[in-house]
Design a protein around this nucleic acid. Sequence first.
DNA 1: TTGTGTTTTGACAAGAACTGTCCAAATTTA
DNA 2: TAAATTTGGACAGTTCTTGTCAAAACACAA
Lengths: 106, 106
Amino acid sequence: MSKINNTSFGEYIKQLREDKHLPLRKIAAELDIDTSTLSKIEKNERNASEQVIERLSEIFEIDKGELKVRYLSDKITYQLLEEKDGIEILKVAEQKIKYYKKNDKH
Amino acid sequence: MSKINNTSFGEYIKQLREDKHLPLRKIAAELDIDTSTLSKIEKNERNASEQVIERLSEIFEIDKGELKVRYLSDKITYQLLEEKDGIEILKVAEQKIKYYKKNDKH
DNA sequence: TTGTGTTTTGACAAGAACTGTCCAAATTTA
DNA sequence: TAAATTTGGACAGTTCTTGTCAAAACACAA
C-alpha cells in the first residue's frame, strides 16, 4: 500500500509551511498568487493549478509526482464521498485505466 | 473483480438502445432532452445529469447504481488518463474514502 | 490593553465551462 | 432517390472558477 497518509492536500502543505515557520505571505509571493488564494488552497477551498503544485514541490523540495498524487486523490475522494458505490467506482476506473494503458489509447 | 466491462457509458447506452431498435428521437423524448444532446451523451461529449441516468435505468430496466458506476468511473478514468500515476492516485483515493467512511465524516 | 503582523472571509468582475436549444449537414436505411 | 436518423456547429443563458481586493478576525509581543 501507499505511504501517503490521510492528510488532505491543503493540510499537508500548510504543515510543510508551518514546519519552516514561514507566513502565507512569503510562500504566496514565491508562488505568485494572492495570500488569500493560498489560504484557501490550504483550506481546500480553491484549486491548485499545475503551476502552483510544481512550484510548491520546488519550494519544499518534495517530489512533484507525490504532490500531484496527494492533490488529485483528494479531488477524486471529494467527488465520490457522497456516492454509495464509491469504492466500486474506483475499482472500475482502475480497470479502465489499465485497459487503456495496455492498449496505448491516450 | 467487478463485472462491468470496458465499454464507455455512452457506448453502453447506445448499445442498449440499438438492441431494442429504438431511434435517438424516441429515447430523447422519454428523457425530455434534445435528440442532439442524447447523441452527444452517447458519444461521451456531454454530461448525463442525475435525472437522465435515473430515467435511462428505468427505460432499459437496469440497476441505477450500476449505471452510475459506469458513468462516474468513466469520468474519473478520463480525468486520470493523462496522469503518470493514475493507478496510484486511485489507490490513495480508495484509502481516503475508506478512512472517511470508517470515521463517518461526510 | 494596544499595535503589528498574519490569516480568513466575503465580495466582485472577468473568463471559462456547461446547458439547453435549434438548424443544417451528413449519414443511414428502406 | 427519399425519408428518417444521427451528427456537428452555433448560439444565448447560466453556472462555476479565477484573480483580486479590502475588511474582519485572529495571534501575540511589547
